[in-house]
Every structure is written in structure tokens, then in C-alpha cells.
């Protein structure tokens, strides 16, 4: 398993469109992807759970990937979050 900490910088946080951007990049990765936030571990392939966890701008999150494509998935995930999830 690999993991990294990062910060959500886009103004909307994990609202509908940013969450869509994130989930669609993760859904075909051959590994488990979880987002740790506010004491909860959220499956990052579920847009519903991701949105319902109300991750806001400025939130410190940890991303964990586990499986065949874990390194690739983690790199992509961090890159997306840090580039603002298409919401900058």
C-alpha cells in the first residue's frame, strides 16, 4: 500500500464536478483508492460517498492506494487534487 498527504485547494472542494473528475480518473485503476478525511476512510471510487463527506477547500486529506496500479493511481490522484480538480 502507498499513501500521500495533500490539501484540497479548489474553491468548491469535493462538490459535484470536482468529485466527478476525481472519481472518473480513479474508477478504472486496478487498485483500491481511499481518501482519509476527518477520521473517516472514504472509498474514492464512490462519488456519492466522496460528496457526502463534505471535503472543503483547505481540507487536509490523505490518499491511500492498494493494489496492482497503486503507484500510478496515487500519483494521478495527488496530481489531480493539487491541480484543483478542474475547478480553478
Amino acid at each position: 500500500m502507498v499513501s500521500a498527504k495533500t490539501k484540497v485547494i479548489n474553491p468548491q472542494g469535493m462538490h459535484m464536478r470536482p468529485a466527478q473528475v476525481f472519481v472518473s480518473a480513479m474508477k478504472n485503476m486496478d487498485c483500491e483508492v481511499r481518501v482519509l478525511y476527518n477520521g473517516k476512510s472514504i472509498d474514492a471510487k464512490s462519488i456519492m460517498r466522496l460528496m457526502a463527506s463534505c471535503i472543503k477547500q483547505g481540507a487536509e486529506i490523505e490518499i491511500q492506494c492498494n493494489g496492482a496500479q497503486e503507484v500510478e493511481a496515487l500519483k494521478k490522484a495527488v496530481e489531480l487534487v493539487e491541480s484543483g480538480l478542474g475547478d480553478l
Binding site: M16, R17, Q20, S24, K27, D43, K45, S46, I47, M48
Partner: peptide, 16 residues
Amino acid sequence: SEILTGQIAMLADPFM
């Protein structure tokens, strides 16, 4: 229109 495209994304949620 994003309200509707969002509904497609929600229904595509593997958990749901």
C-alpha cells in the same frame, strides 16, 4: 446542464 450530467455520474456510482 451540469445538474443532469451529475445525475448520470451518481447513478454510475459502483456502490449505489
